[in-house]
């Protein structure tokens, strides 16, 4: 698919991007800032329509947002007029669960993401790391076919980010949901992905596809082990050269 904003003369976010994600696979789209990687994710979610091409989930074309795709944004977009528990219960309620059942699912997930005791808290009372925990729980509670994560941990401090990555890893390794995550963080990609798609600078297109072969279950200690060095330095070189192009284009 290709995505262009503002007509033929407009800005081309990405061009001829083609990829497939298998059920239960964790794919990371890695690219320099401003390469159109979020646009790709938004097209998969049905928020925007690709200018050319199409998005298929289980063979059905995505034409509008639906509960098939759970999305987690970088800034949390939790609803401040609802409590933690109510935010997480939205997905189950919309699927038709009774209020009691929705609350049970919500409470179980609150427990799972380590926020026991915050069920009735309001969103404004939570820290940045806690809101992303609630966000993750809310996305999981809706039980989507595909989970889309748009740089979900980019605004967190480095220690909190590591906590969240480990939480995501452990949840994913138990549930094996289909995940597409967008990031510019090489470590995050190496830690989480089964497969990495490397995007060029804008207009983004896939310039590299890498299998990430490390055994699971993984933990952050993987990143300080010798086995990642080769892939890491390769990705680093490629990403740097794309990032440089972005900077040069801006001049």
């Amino acid at each position: 698919m290709s995505i262009r904003f503002g007509g033929i003369e407009g800005l081309t976010a990405c061009t001829r991007v083609e990829f497939e994600v298998k059920p239960g696979e964790f794919v990371v789209v890695l690219g320099p800032s401003g390469c159109g990687k979020s646009s790709i994710l938004y097209a998969v979610a049905g928020f925007i329509r690709p200018t050319e091409g199409l998005v298929l989930i289980d063979g059905t074309e995505v034409i509008e947002p639906s509960a098939d795709c759970g999305v987690m944004f970088q800034s949390h977009k939790l609803f401040p007029w609802k409590t933690v528990e109510e935010n997480i219960a939205i997905g189950p309620r919309m699927r038709g669960s009774s209020n009691i059942e929705a609350r049970r699912i919500s409470r179980a997930l609150i427990h799972r993401v380590g926020l026991k005791g915050f069920e009735l808290a309001h969103i404004s009372e939570l820290s940045g790391g806690m809101t992303q925990r609630v966000n993750l729980a809310r996305t999981l509670a809706a039980d989507p076919k595909v989970i889309l994560l748009d740089e979900p941990f980019a605004s967190l401090d480095s220690q909190t980010r590591i906590d969240m990555q480990e939480l995501l890893l452990s949840i994913w390794e138990n549930s094996r949901k289909t995940v597409l995550l967008v990031t510019h963080d090489i470590d995050e990609a190496l830690l989480l992905a089964d497969r990495i798609l490397l995007l060029s600078s804008r207009p983004g297109s896939v310039v590299g596809r890498f299998l990430v072969p490390y055994a699971r279950p993984r933990s952050t200690s993987l990143l300080s082990s010798g086995q990642v060095l080769e892939l890491k330095s390769k990705l680093f070189t490629l990403l740097r050269s794309e990032q440089r192009k972005t900077t040069e284009n801006r001049r």
Binding site: A67, F79, W81, R138, P144
Partner: peptide, 28 residues
């Protein structure tokens, strides 16, 4: 915020519920 509406729709919130549970509270 468009992302509120996007977030709600990808949780399956539609129609009058989108208005009542998301749009109006956000405008309150």
């Amino acid at each position: 915020d468009t992302q509120y509406i996007w977030a709600a729709r990808s949780l399956g919130v539609q129609g009058w519920r989108l208005l009542w549970e998301v749009v109006l509270p956000a405008a309150v």
